[in-house]
Design a protein around this nucleic acid. Structure first.
Length: 563
RNA sequence: UGGGGUGUAGCCAAGUGGUAAGGCAUGGGACUUUGACUCCCACAUUCGUAGGUUCGAGCCCUGCCACCCCAGCCA
């Protein structure tokens, strides 16, 4: 027993990698036992939809493990079912992978290996390990048995090798109609693992394939094609989600009987689930097809392109994945963790700009009319880099930052008779409000303290509240229109209401008037208190990028429930 | 109720026989030119459960319970 322990210690030293999850432990083991030397993984999406954050987990695992071991990761489009797949998704998938920052080694399509699959199927037939079955779909189901009862052999199970060879060739040649025949592995109809009860290997489909056109009318099943593809590419570790666990015996069976050596090892991990988030491709597709959302990249979608539009950064997503961990227990990760990761990333590098969503007019009556001065604001807290903002007698502040009478003792915002600091500018005191006949507040009239200018030595007076604001002269009046990555094009109505109520700390940052200048002619007006970030990397006058760490999840969930 | 899996805090998750890491969330405090950020502090006498082995068990053994996956010519 001691020897075993010693061996495993040595193995750890050999791999030079400290395992941080069970997958890496398996890999270390394989390395130590000399089963593999160079690690190669693969990310095998089916091109039938856009990648979502759940796929990002697989991507993260496949790529980061390969990288950790100095190996490579391939990208392979798993396109064995032309009925469900489309070229449309191929480019989108590659774009999303690149956006996350991953670079695959070899790019391939499962269909690249159709010839080999066919040959191997013939080989299996030759070994007496596969046969052509004429049973219908329904009959096959009946013959399969149930969870508790064994299945029974198909009457076609014992056809001669010659007949099977001829029939399978005929299938390929299109001599048999769809559904009339199928190639099956001859394993064990009494196996307690239903996947081993003579699983289908090939089916007839007169559908042209987005890669191979009309070359084929028979297509291999996933269970047959996948191990073959992995083996051909020299994949050492085929990482996939838990639902394939029961398929592993079949995966191994195929690899073994097709005489591959070495053979890839399949390791399963739990897929990602997020609270309040629909991760099923089926539902996501429904949302798109039924027009519940604008498209796969609608900011409310958990797709990578949706998250991207919503302002998520690749770094935040990868950090999130790393923190959520890799294990085998079914779990639902709190979406708050994802948001936290975004906030943390953005907080460190997103340029701070100011803007106002619901403008309330504010006049500084002791500030000279017509005067305007240029102030400077840090791009990041404590940053040397600053940008200019204009200040004058007429400003806008956030409607909700003002209350005639303080609603509570702990109210730090502006009220009649109260003082507050305008971020990056002066301390002001509210003298009175002006209202219309109906009693609506039209304007808040204040005085400012010229000695309190931000940054001045004598500005040391402390004031509890600080408000963001925009210069009425340079700000554009407007509707809710936000440009950029978060709510990209345009957000109708009052977007605030659509935010998750739990997201009170979710958004941060500022939008400032100069952006509006850049968009002169457009109606534009923004921002709720400290809640948005403009990501400096993507910042340009033409493209304001607003990052919000929480999307429109509430709305989103309701829509899904309606399906 | 056949097979395959999984159960550690509100949510994830380390832990590999030596006396329960870490993160998110939450509560409290400090700081603050945005009630943010940041920083401190608190947060499992107990690991689904009942027994057993052991000087010692979250880790080993046995039984039980719960949840997930498999009966596509989907992946």
């Amino acid at each position: 027993m001691d020897e075993v322990t010693e061996d495993s210690n040595i193995s750890r030293a050999d791999s030079g990698v400290k395992a941080s999850n069970f997958i890496e432990e398996f890999i270390n083991q394989d390395l130590a036992e000399g089963k593999v030397s160079e690690i190669r993984t693969r990310f095998p999406p089916e091109p039938n939809g856009y990648l979502h954050i759940g796929h990002a987990k697989a991507l993260f695992i496949d790529f980061s493990i390969a990288e950790k071991y100095g190996g490579k990761c391939n990208l392979r489009f798993d396109d064995t079912n032309p009925a469900k797949e489309d070229e449309e998704y191929v480019d989108a998938i590659m774009e999303d992978i690149r956006w996350l920052g991953y670079r695959w080694d070899k790019l391939a399509y499962g269909s690249d290996y159709f010839d080999t699959c066919y040959e191997l199927a013939m080989k299996l037939i030759g070994k007496g390990l596969a046969y052509v079955d004429d049973l219908s779909k329904d009959e096959m189901r009946e013959y399969r048995g149930t969870l508790t009862e064994p299945g029974k052999n198909s009457p076609y199970r014992d056809r001669s090798m010659e007949e099977n060879l001829r029939l399978f060739r005929e299938m390929k040649e299109g001599k048999h109609p769809e559904g009339s025949k199928v190639l099956r592995a001859k394993i064990d109809m009494a196996s307690p693992n239903l996947n081993m009860r003579d699983p289908a290997l090939y089916r007839i489909m007169f559908i042209s394939h987005h890669q191979t056109g009309d070359k084929w009318c028979i297509y291999p099943m996933y269970d047959f094609a996948h191990p073959i593809q992995d083996a051909i590419e020299g994949i050492t570790h085929s990482l996939c989600s838990l639902e394939y666990e029961a398929h592993r015996p079949l995966y191994d069976w195929v690899a073994e009987h097709c005489d591959f050596d070495p053979r890839p090892r399949q390791i399963e991990f739990a897929r990602l689930n997020l609270t309040n988030t629909v991760m099923s491709k089926r539902y996501l597709r429904a949302l798109v097809e039924e027009g519940q959302v604008d498209g796969w990249d609608d900011p409310r979608m958990p797709t990578l392109c949706g998250l991207r539009r919503r302002g998520y950064t690749p770094e935040a997503i990868k950090d999130f994945l790393a923190r959520a961990g890799i294990a085998k227990a079914d779990s639902v990760v709190d979406a708050g963790l994802l948001e936290h990761c975004l906030r943390e990333d953005l907080n460190a590098r997103a340029k701070r700009l100011m803007g106002v969503t619901r403008p309330l007019r504010l006049e500084i009556e002791n500030y000279p009319e017509g005067k305007s001065e240029t102030l400077f604001m840090e791009n990041l807290p404590g940053s040397e880099e600053k940008h200019e903002i204009s200040f004058s007698r007429d400003l806008y502040i956030e409607e909700e930052d003002f209350s005639e009478v303080p609603p509570s003792k702990k109210y730090f915002r502006l009220y009649v008779g109260g003082e507050v600091r305008l971020k990056g500018a002066y301390i002001i005191k509210c003298e009175r409000v002006e209202k219309d006949e109906a009693g609506n507040i039209l304007k808040v009239v204040c005085t400012y303290d010229p000695l309190s200018k931000s940054g001045d030595v004598n500005a040391g007076r402390k004031i509890k509240g600080t408000l963001h604001w925009v210069d009425a002269k340079t700000a554009l009046p407007a509707e809710y229109r936000i440009y950029g990555s978060l709510l990209t094009d345009e957000l109708e109505g009052d977007f605030k209401e659509r935010l998750n109520p739990d997201s009170k700390q979710a958004l941060k940052g500022f939008i400032e008037p100069e952006i509006k200048k850049a968009k002169a002619g457009e109606q534009f007006q923004l921002l709720r208190k400290g809640y948005f970030c403009a990501d400096s990397r993507d910042f340009s006058p033409e493209r304001v990028v607003l990052n919000m760490s929480v999307g429109l999840r509430d709305t989103y969930t309701k829509q899904v429930n309606n399906i």
